[in-house]
Design a protein around this nucleic acid. Structure first.
Length: 574
RNA sequence: CGGGGUAUAGCUCAGCCUGGUAGAGCACUGGGUUCGGGACUCAGGGGCCGGAGGUUCAAAUCCUCUUAUCCCGACCA
């Protein structure tokens, strides 16, 4: 492709709205432009990258035996009413009304549509297992789109749905997808980790997320430094510390004055006690405004996903002022003694003794709080967020570390939720009707583009892995008006194209500096510099975007050397 | 949805407080010089200051409403 006839609107300056590096570079390199909040146009260069990701995904899905199809983006409300999600899904579902006043939605996901298809078309166990996938535009009306295409409202996703006769079949389908995903992210040149994930509102069976490791990631993931355990922090648990029996006699329960000391930190300093000795008391509330009191060790934070797993999905943390209205006490003075609220304590508190908590009296705390003698609770539960250094829940030796990740894939055992709701049945060998057991498997195709940039960039711009690069080679012709350079550049251009190598020929009438800067910005892995002093010596320059020395070679050797270099890049050899 | 910003040329922004009819840099067009790391110079084009209403002799500037967008938080099969 010739640069002069391609729209690659690179920007010298960084648009203010872009906060993360991938968003900045996608705008600067002319990959995308924003049309509205969370809605983007893919420009020629960006689209080429997107297509690369799609092709990798497609080839691995096909290899795993999945069948590609394409479902409608717009879906009738009836299907969603049938599954119960029309009411459940909330405002994230973009609803549309047609000219006949009929309700539709723009599909955020396609469980209903695929299940409807299967219920109509699949009759016999002989047709299973089956796995259908599509690569398609989705729309989720996110509360807050951000970070460019990383969290857009309209985005491109590969979604796949497997159907099996029994659990064992689902396990096989799930494993196949799990392996396909590993191959996909490897081929994309991404550093990633598969982690156990919260199953959310759907509940039940197992689920894994695939995260690209990046400091800007929106998710935190915990992993063991010793065994293979890795989980989203929403789900991650920690080993309980080994309880050290305390031999000293219990302190007496004393009410002490703590004027104006409202936070854990303040009370800890005021009483000269480590935060671990304090009990953090949190009021939570369900939809019916019923309150409970949650207890955590002072140095621990509440994991709201775990909280909802214990108390129900509608439970929230009211604001401090609201708590004060409800209880008549400032949040800093709440405590589990002499309260009428049900009290649930985090597991990590169980080993504590001589603890400190709010006295349920403004400006006072209780010290010397001990289990059984002073305090009983209705339930112990895992409520806290793990922190780096916690013991691994799986192995005896490992410690958990925390990393940031960008979720690019999710595999999920659905079970019969949708086949049951939509009454899809398949006959088994005995002629009995069964609801097929489903799995669903998503990959954020457009998000992968952003995630790849988060991992592969430097001060000068994007450094594409070859597998995702919009072009494998860019010919940087230094002077567009230099006849000899044009002849050589054109020969190289045609020869590379003949070998099916994607090449961008920068034939623009621009200064050398501009062309170098743009070549770096757009991140094409291999640069061929044609013109100037090296051409006078009968040479062209070959260099790699990721760094290293430029090599001077004769033009008639150049293509062969490029091919060699690309092969090395392909295998990841230095 | 709650809180906080922003909206002026294609982009990044100044001007607003203290009203007097719009600017810079980059980009764009033409000329000249330059030509291997985002050139220099001369001359130009381009904005009904997001929209509506109000105050005023006069509004980019003050007031009200509205729309869009960004950030923080809650949300996320």
């Amino acid at each position: 492709m010739r640069y002069s006839t391609t729209l690659i609107p690179t920007l010298r300056e960084t648009p203010v709205e872009a906060k993360v590096i991938s968003h900045q570079l996608m705008l600067r390199a002319g990959l995308v432009r924003q049309l509205g909040a969370g809605i983007y146009t893919w420009l020629p260069l960006g689209l080429r990258v997107l297509r690369r990701v799609e092709q990798i995904v497609r080839s691995e899905m096909d290899r795993a035996g999945a069948q590609e199809l394409l479902m409608p983006a717009v879906q009738p409300a009836e299907l969603w009413q049938e599954s119960g999600r029309w009411g459940y899904y909330g405002k994230e579902l973009l609803r549309i009304i047609d000219r006949h006043q009929r309700d539709f939605c723009f599909g955020p996901t396609h469980e209903e549509v695929i299940t409807d298809l299967v219920r109509r078309e699949v009759r016999s166990w002989r047709q299973l297992p089956a796995n259908f996938y599509q690569i398609q535009t989705k729309f989720r009306d996110e509360i807050r789109p951000r970070f460019g295409v990383m969290r857009g409202r309209e985005f491109i996703m590969k979604d796949a749905y497997s159907f099996d006769m029994d659990e064992a079949g689902l396990d096989r389908s799930y494993q196949l997808m799990f392996q396909a995903y590993q191959r996909i992210f490897q081929r994309c040149g991404l550093r990633f980790r598969a982690v156990e994930a919260d199953t959310g509102a759907i509940g039940g069976a197992s689920s894994h997320e695939f995260h690209v490791l990046a400091s800007s990631g929106e998710d935190a993931i915990a992993s063991c430094d010793s065994c293979g355990y890795a989980a989203n922090v929403e789900k991650a648990t920690a080993a309980l510390p080994i309880a050290i029996p305390h031999t000293e006699p219990m302190q007496p329960l004393v009410e002490v004055e703590t004027p104006g000391q409202a936070s854990i930190e303040a009370v800890s300093q005021f009483l000269s006690l480590p935060p671990q000795r304090l009990i953090k008391s949190l009021v939570v509330m369900d939809e019916a405004d019923h309150c409970s009191l949650l207890l955590l060790r002072g140095d621990h934070e509440l994991n709201e996903v775990k909280m909802r797993a214990v108390l129900g999905s509608g439970v929230t943390l009211p604001a401090a002022e609201q708590v004060e209205q409800l209880t008549g006490l400032p949040v800093g003075s709440l405590g589990p003694l002499h309260t009428e609220l049900p009290v649930i304590a985090d597991l990590a508190l169980r080993g504590g003794h001589d603890m400190v908590c709010g006295a349920n009296r403004r400006g006072y705390h209780l010290t010397g709080v001990n289990w059984d003698r002073d305090l009983t609770v209705s339930q112990f539960a895992d409520l806290r967020a793990v922190v780096a250094g916690d013991g691994c829940p799986r192995c005896a030796t490992g410690l958990l570390q925390l990393d940031r990740g960008i979720e690019v894939g999710h595999v999920f055992k659905l079970g019969v939720k949708y086949s049951q709701a939509l009454n899809a049945t398949v006959l088994d060998t005995d002629g009995q009707a069964h609801h097929p057991i489903m799995g669903c498997y998503g990959i954020g195709v457009s998000r992968i583009v952003a995630a790849a940039i988060e991992q592969h960039h430097d001060a000068n711009g994007i450094v594409w892995p070859l597998a995702l690069a919009p072009f494998a080679v860019v010919i940087v012709q230094l002077n567009a008006k230099e006849a000899e350079a044009t002849v050589v550049a054109e020969q190289l251009y045609q020869e590379l194209q003949r070998r099916s190598i994607d090449v961008l020929w920068d034939d623009r009438d621009e200064r050398a500096g501009v062309k170098f800067k743009d070549a770096e910005l757009i991140g094409v892995p291999v640069q061929l510099v044609v013109g100037g002093r090296s051409l006078k010596e009968g040479r062209v320059e070959l260099r790699q975007r990721r760094g290293g020395e430029a090599v001077l070679i004769a033009p008639d050797q150049a293509v062969a050397t490029v091919v060699q270099m690309l092969n090395q890049l392909d295998t990841g050899e230095p």
